[in-house]
C-alpha cells in the first residue's frame, strides 16, 4: 500500500447498490444519477440485495423500506449485523414519511433518509455527501494502518494481518513464514550522515521490500529500522530465498549521499510448511531470536528456523 494507492479512490467510480421492489425506481434513479459517474447495481428484493452487498462491496446503498417479503428495515438490520457489510453507508429512500420510521432507520444505522418522491437536486447532494463521508472514513482507516515515512503497513496493520495469517495456517495447515529485518548499524548511519540520510535508507529499503516481495506477501514497518514481511503460502526454505534476495539487493545499492558506505540488513525467518506448533506471539518472538542470531553471527545475513517442528535448529543461509 503506497501513498499513490490511497488517492485512487477519488478517481474510481463509486458503486451504488439500489434496493427497491419497483423497477420504475431503478430506471428513475439511473436517469437521475447519470451525471454522477456512478456504477449502479440493482436489486429488486432484500435477499438478492444482501447477496449483492456481500459480493460487490458497494460504496453506498440506497434502500427502499416498503418492500414485500423482507422489508427495508430487515435488510438494514442484516447489513449492519454482518462484518462484511456493516461499514457500507445506507441512505433510506422511502415513501414512509413518519418521524417514527425515520428514527427507526437511523437507529438501525442508516446515514440519511430521503422521502419519495425525491427532489432531484436533494437526491444528488445527499448521495454526494454520503459518498464523500465514506471516502473520508476509508481514508482515515487506511491512514491509521499506514506508516507515514515509508507508506508500508504499520504495526497496527501487521497485528491484524498476522492474526489472520496465523489463523489460516492453523485452520488449513497452509504454509506460512515470517521475516523480521533490521538495518545494520542504522544508528551510525544517522549519526554519521544525518537523519535525512537515515530516512532515505528506510524509504529505500521499504521500496525494495515492496519490489522484491511477491504479490501475496505483506511488508510492514515494525518500528524504527525494523521491518517485517508476512509470507503466506510460503515455507521456511522459500521464505529464506526471498529474504536473501532482498538482503543482496540492498547490499548492491550505491548511495549518492554516502558512496563509501553500503547499507546492509540482518534478517530472521521463522516458517512452517504445516500447522505451526507455537502461538502467533511466540512465533514473532522466535523470529526475533533468529534476527538476534543473524546479528550475532556477523550481520548482513538471514537466519532461518521452523515453526512447525520440535526441532527448531538454527540455520544460516547466505
Amino acid at each position: 500500500m503506497t501513498e499513490s494507492g490511497n488517492n485512487t479512490t477519488e478517481f474510481t467510480r463509486h458503486r451504488v447498490l439500489i434496493i427497491d421492489d419497483a423497477e420504475d425506481v431503478h430506471r428513475l434513479l439511473g436517469a437521475r444519477l447519470k451525471q454522477e459517474r456512478l456504477e449502479l447495481l440493482s436489486a429488486l428484493d432484500g435477499r438478492t440485495a444482501l447477496e449483492m452487498a456481500r459480493e460487490q462491496d458497494p460504496s453506498l446503498v440506497l434502500l427502499d423500506l416498503d418492500m414485500p417479503g423482507m422489508d427495508g428495515f430487515e435488510v438494514l438490520r442484516h447489513l449492519k449485523a454482518s462484518d462484511e457489510t456493516h461499514e457500507i453507508p445506507v441512505i433510506v429512500l422511502s415513501g414512509l414519511q413518519s418521524p417514527a420510521d425515520k428514527v427507526t432507520a437511523f437507529d438501525l444505522g442508516a446515514v440519511d433518509y430521503i422521502t419519495k418522491p425525491f427532489d432531484l437536486m436533494e437526491l444528488r447532494v445527499r448521495v454526494r455527501s454520503a459518498l464523500k463521508m465514506a471516502d473520508l472514513i476509508n481514508m482515515l482507516a487506511q491512514r491509521a494502518h499506514i506508516d507515514g515515512l515509508t507508506g508500508l503497513y504499520n504495526r497496527i496493520a501487521f497485528d491484524e494481518r498476522w492474526a489472520q495469517s496465523t489463523a489460516e495456517n492453523q485452520r488449513h495447515a497452509k504454509p506460512l513464514s515470517l521475516a523480521i529485518f533490521d538495518l545494520d548499524h542504522f544508528k551510525s548511519i544517522n549519526d554519521t550522515y544525518g537523519h535525512p540520510a537515515g530516512d532515505e535508507a528506510l524509504r529505500t529499503f521499504a521500496r525494495l521490500l515492496q519490489r522484491e516481495c511477491r504479490q501475496s506477501d505483506v511488508p510492514c514497518r515494525f518500528g524504527g529500522e525494523e521491518f517485517v514481511l508476512i509470507m503466506p503460502e510460503t515455507g521456511p526454505d522459500a521464505a529464506a530465498a526471498v529474504c536473501n534476495r532482498i538482503r543482496e539487493a540492498l547490499e548492491a545499492i550505491e548511495w549518492p549521499a554516502h558512496p563509501e558506505r553500503r547499507v546492509t540488513v540482518s534478517c530472521g525467518v521463522l516458517g512452517a510448511d504445516n500447522t505451526a506448533t507455537i502461538s502467533p506471539s511466540d512465533w514473532v518472538q522466535a523470529t526475533d531470536e533468529q534476527l538476534y542470531a543473524a546479528k550475532n553471527g556477523g550481520r548482513n545475513r538471514v537466519m532461518v528456523s521452523r515453526a512447525d517442528r520440535a526441532d527448531q535448529s538454527l540455520r544460516q543461509t547466505g
Binding site: D20, D21, A22, D24, V25, L28, R32, D64, D66, G95, K116, P117, F118
Partner: peptide, 11 residues
C-alpha cells in the same frame, strides 16, 4: 398501488 405510489412522483 404501491408501485404507482412509489414511482409516479418520481416521474
Amino acid at each position: 398501488t404501491h408501485q404507482l405510489s412509489g414511482a409516479c412522483g418520481g416521474y
